[in-house]
Design a protein around this nucleic acid. Structure first.
Lengths: 224, 224, 224, 224
DNA sequence: TATGAATGAGTATTCATTCAT
DNA sequence: TATGAATGAATACTCATTCAT
């Protein structure tokens, strides 16, 4: 699978992997403060002066690092969008077809666990991203592009592979993917956003969700 | 199932059924305009002057009918929240256990179709509601309350009923419910919000989603 | 003393004596409410809608009776200004010189008592008048005109009369008048506005104030 | 007379003596403009935009220096209230009893002259203060507190001292004080506020007012 | 790099007043 | 006479952004 036709990749990989490009102490505080407040009240309802205050810097300092308020938002939302799809970008992901997953369950389990952990570690950033995406065309395009061109296409191949092996029913790959995504997102949203205070057995949760993804809620033919 | 202990019901039924309490022509236009713009740019990013302009009224007129901008939001978001859960409120819903659904599929199919249609007819309102809920504690409480006390409790009974009949695997009812909800919401979000322009066969979609809910994506034991 | 040269008088006497020119029940309530609120928060800080609310009438009703908000103020402040100087207008006042006061003390005592009672009965109205007078040229002119042309001139004659009799020291009459006015106003302000809740013996108060007006605070020559 | 029990003093002395705590040029212009307009039309009838215009600054600039319009008022009215009673705060005032005044007249003359000059130099500020005091409880409390705890108590001692010496008639000290205050305020109001354009011999005015305060308007016993 | 005073366009809301009912 | 919906100008205050220091 040659990546050379996808101009996305260079940019994306950089974004996804970038730790950060030389950041002042103050700049770091500004980012922290912005993430906190954006996720609490939403981008539009947050004032730069409030950010400055919580970050402990002067109002003007924000604009020395970020040309506009929107710039600040994009510098937060862009990278997190990239990181959300990062695992699907990995060079090794291409090789998934041969290795290391022999079973669909293993494949989905791996993704589910990984993204659950990721979501828990980046809850605020994800909240910001999801919230602002519909209102900022650039963000929307970026995310849509990444999801369709990178994630969708790649996973589609995996699904087709497992369908060819007879491990997955014959159905349009997008339906399989949407089902898996829905169930996992449902699980993640529940534990990370709806009832984050409620403890739970992570492995068990993933396993049970996986079971329903594979066999549904009907007992019929389970033991067959 | 006596409802007398739930103070929610009176209020909710009123909200859910209320067409509207005597509304000036201008008031109607204000509401329309507000819904349009709130759903386009979000509540916080919408100015009252823009609403007035699009509604073709003076800015002051808005405040004659709604004490504050937030009041206007709540008068939009409150009722739609009520209508979202309305079907689960119906008195007849309680009798679902005996009649008219003999099969889980029938029960879930009925809900899925109904809510899909509802979502399509109220896409903008739902978008507003979901978007603002995390930022307005009153809304959050209202919705949480409705979902847990009304929807959850009622569906739980139905699930237990079908589990007793052996139509549903033994698992905590909330897991069954979450799975169904996730899959249906995934379907609705896709068709109503992500690719609304893409036509689709509604019955087929519901049927296929239902199939996965019941039997999963594994071919194993399907014909058993 | 021919009054024909003073165009003030006709108008003033009418104002001072007028009970009220046919007043609707609602109009009465509006006036009451306006007086109450004007005296509480000042004219400029009072909104017509608040007046309407406290009066229990519709907003529009106020403007049916008073063309503007200022009109309402003037209909309150004008009459009270007239009533403040009313006693000095009385036809009989002219005859004071002959009768019924043989002693300055009697003259001042009579005025002091009368105006003290008046102030207590009209505290709110007086507060409004004094407060708004500097900001409304019409009011200022009206009051100034009344004070100089009516009150000042008349009392001046009385003072001159008592000076001729040797009951009052030789000094410009205005100084005598200002001294008396200052002392009595100090007394009235104290009891009506500063410490209205503090009870006091009215006669005693007037008598003591009068004593100081006549003989000062020095004991020298008192018994002479 | 130990002041240590009066927590007022520290605060008050600071207020009364403070020239100003580092003030931008623009801030100064804002203050000037506000004083001018507040005294012309009253606080409530003055708009911040008008102040900004007259001060030659942007409207936003006002709010950088004063959080609210009321804040601006208080920053004007607070200090002037303190300065009004400042002379009575002076440490030397306590020693008045021994020195330098041997005669009541000297004591009152000194205060009268000083406050007359002060009033003339601060006419606008005093007008603002007196006008707004009844409508702003904080101001009212501040002024009341200062007048009763500082001014009243201190002058009372002086009066008692002169009564003991036989220079002042036996009467409740507050009556003596009120009489003096009334006469002096009458004089000040006349010359500073009512007819400021009318020139007058300051010393003569004070002397004549003092004479009436001491001996009243009756000629009886004057030469005794 | 960092500050914070300054800006002026923009904000939600209130106002006195009008007018059709 | 009385109402209250409608107005649009005005209000106090906030905003993102600039710039001299």
């Amino acid at each position: 699978m040659s990546e050379t036709k996808e101009p996305w990749l260079g940019e994306l990989l950089r974004l996804a992997e970038a730790e950060d490009p030389v950041k002042t102490v103050k700049q770091g505080k500004i980012l922290e403060a912005a993430i906190e407040i954006f996720s609490e009240k939403g981008y539009a309802a947050t004032s730069t002066s409030e950010i400055a205050q919580r970050a402990g810097v002067a109002e003007g300092t924000i604009f020395r690092h970020y040309k506009t308020k929107k710039d600040l938002l994009l510098s937060i939302a862009g990278p997190i969008a990239a990181k959300m799809v990062a695992p699907f970008l990995m060079r090794e992901f291409a090789k998934i077809i041969d290795f290391p997953y022999n079973w669909v369950e293993d494949f989905f389990r791996s993704i589910a666990k990984d993204r659950l952990i990721f979501a828990r570690q980046n809850a605020k950033l994800i909240k910001i991203l999801l919230h602002e995406v519909p209102f900022h065309p650039e963000l929307l395009e970026q995310l849509k592009g990444m999801l369709t061109h990178i994630v969708f296409h790649r996973i589609e191949k995996v699904v087709l592979h497992f369908q060819a092996q007879g491990q997955v029913i014959e159905a349009p790959p997008w339906r399989i993917m949407r089902s898996a995504a829905s169930l996992f997102i449902g699980m993640i949203v529940t534990h990370v956003f709806l009832v984050p205070e409620h403890p739970f057995d992570e492995d068990e949760e993933v396993e049970r969700t996986l079971d329903i993804l594979m066999h549904g809620i009907s007992p019929a033919g389970r033991n067959a």
